[in-house]
Amino acid sequence: MSTTAVKLAPAIRTSAEAQASARRGVAAPPATRLSTAAAAASEPAANPIGPRLAALGRSVATNVVPPVLVIGVLLVLWELLCHRPGAGLPPPSRVVTETWDLIVDPFFDNGGTDKGLFWHISASLQRVFMGFSIAVVVGVALGTLVGQSTWAMRGLDPLFQVLRTVPPLAWLPLSLAAFRDGQPSAIFVIFITSVWPIIINTAVGIRNIPQDYRNVAAVLRLNGFEFFWRIMVPSAAPYIFTGLRIGVGLSWLAIVAAEMLIGGVGIGFFIWDAWNSSKMSEIILALVYVGLIGFVLDRIVAFAATIVTRGTSAQ
């Protein structure tokens, strides 16, 4: 039986041997086959690595294999459809070869707008970061006001409901007229796009603060500031973060369109520039980056939400 154990699980034997020698605290003497096999057989619990690796492998397999498979099939389909000469889009193989320089060197800077993708994307991210940050502050503040005061809700809610349906780019001419510069205009468009879901979700969160918590605050005589930080924000945090997630997604949607119009450095302008020079491959590469970064932004906000709202869900 011990020989079958050795044959079936060489990995088990080595790990058990390593642990056994470590426990002895001295360099293990060169063990014979038989003694190590006996150690493996007598210590079934001293083998946590093998099954854990297997479980990890299984979870990777179930989560990674399907998307990889689907993407592979789609790429092959795309390659087949666009491979013939005269196709409207380049096949993936040509996209990679044509944009290889951009992929391997995202950091070059030849002055003007002739920069690597890293610089374009970071310029776009900076605008989103600024516009979104302003939107968070203003959105949470206005949402708190609307959620807390019935009068403010009656006065402001109709306004919000109408303004939030205005498409982001419709604000651009107005903001260009007001700021007379591309950079603040783009930031304003990001702000005005992402602020509505933050306002509305915060207001719902504030309105849903249980009366019990308000009673506790009243008995303790918390002042407005304490009530805001100790009760309102934690209690409404799940709602606020829902608004933030929608908001960050919308800002990333809006920045590309806004940058196409205002020009300068930015991923939106990069796409427009590539279109003007008929570089389809570069557009496709840029779209891949835009999609991946949008995904990462969403994940970051979601991650922040899980940390901040840990334990805020009432039983």
Binding site: P210, D212, Y213, N215, V216, A218, V219, L220, R221, R230, I231, P234, S235, A237, T309, R310, G311, T312, S313, A314, Q315
Partner: peptide, 18 residues
């Protein structure tokens, strides 16, 4: 007005879950 000189033990405990 409410105040801590009349502390309340609420029926559903009203502890802050966070």
């Amino acid at each position: 007005a409410p105040g801590p000189d009349r502390a309340v033990v609420f029926q559903n405990h009203s502890l802050l879950p966070w």
